[in-house]
Design a protein around this nucleic acid. Structure first.
Length: 307
DNA sequence: AAAACGGGGCT
DNA sequence: AGCCCAGTTTT
């Protein structure tokens, strides 16, 4: 689940910490979601953490702790789609199932000289078909992993090293000198601008944090109190989002500048303000947090707090 | 069919 | 500054 759209090198330390805390499916199933999110903090695509937690609960509560071993059974679990079901079935259970991830798409496109864009659903369907046809009868899991590793280490997007490729002799793109042209570039939408005003409100060693809703960007994660600005004055933003007690005793807050944070579909620009006050009782969605609390905080807010 | 969903590695 | 990464779910 962590590896979905995330490189293995990035995942490794998160995976180690996660398994140390939750050694098996039972430990994960009875965990608090906040603790699951804390170990996911910084990894991104936080819905994956929620879905994995749900999947663990299904395995324990509805499947008597036994993990599904078929593609169809795996597809029933939250957060497991066609790729993950095929990968788990073939690698863990030696089922002859195809996979199609970013690496395999690129490798198969080149080997079979598929020039159509991966944006087209029909192209992806064709690649799934090809992935099915190339599966061997034995050691299909090893074969699938080899396909992915070939894409990750040899048949790379920009610098394919065909002279080091074990299957260059059967690669149609190589024969036709089309390796650089395949796959054709993906059409991508431009990142949209998101302007947020964020407040660093401190009370001694504590900082005011707010829990985000369970939907949308950074769902269920904690944040510095913030809101979309849309041209309105930061002071009004503060009036709108800060708890009344905090607002009343807030010493003059001052701007500490702009923090830019780049996401795939958003360019987030934080206008950051700093202020301090005494600790107050807070509404349920707020907390006075210190370093020991380990609340799940997205990278964007980790960055702001490290200023 | 398209959008939403993070963050970082690599060129 | 782009492009991509062991994709899935929701709209």
């Amino acid at each position: 689940m962590m590896l979905q759209q995330t490189q293995t090198g990035t995942v490794a330390p998160y995976f180690a910490a996660f398994l140390k805390k939750f050694p098996d499916v039972h430990a994960l199933a009875r965990a608090d979601r906040q603790d699951v999110l804390s170990l996911w903090a910084g990894l991104g695509y936080y819905r994956r953490a929620h879905l994995l937690h749900e999947a663990a609960r299904v395995v324990v509560n509805e499947l008597a702790g036994t993990f599904p071993s078929t593609v169809d059974g795996l597809l029933e679990l939250p957060g497991i789609g066609r790729y993950s079901a095929g990968a788990i079935a073939s690698i863990a259970f030696d089922v002859s199932a195809p996979i199609l991830d970013g690496n395999v798409k690129r490798v198969l496109s080149r080997v079979f000289a598929v020039r159509e864009s991966h944006n087209e659903a029909s192209t992806v369907a064709r690649l799934w078909q090809l992935s099915t046809t190339v599966i061997p009868r034995k050691r299909c899991g090893d074969f699938n992993q080899a396909l992915m590793d070939l894409g990750a280490t040899v048949c790379k997007p920009k610098t394919a090293t065909c002279n080091a490729c074990p299957i260059a002799t059967v690669c149609q793109a190589h024969a036709l000198q089309l390796t650089q042209e395949i796959p054709s570039p993906r059409v991508r939408s431009k990142p949209k601008d998101l302007h947020l005003t964020a407040f660093i409100i401190k009370a001694g060693d504590f900082v005011l944090l707010h829990r985000r809703p369970d939907t949308g960007l950074w769902a269920g994660m904690w944040e510095l109190p913030s809101a979309e600005t849309n041209g309105s004055e930061a002071e009004q933003v503060g009036d709108a989002i800060l708890p009344a007690g905090v607002r009343g005793s807030l010493k003059k807050s001052e701007s500490v500048g702009i923090v830019k944070h780049q996401l795939t579909h958003r360019t987030v620009r934080f206008q950051v303000y700093r202020g301090h006050c005494k600790k107050h009782r807070l509404p349920a969605s707020f907390r006075w947090a210190n370093a020991n609390d380990e609340l799940p905080l997205p990278k964007a807010f980790q960055k702001i707090l490290s200023i």
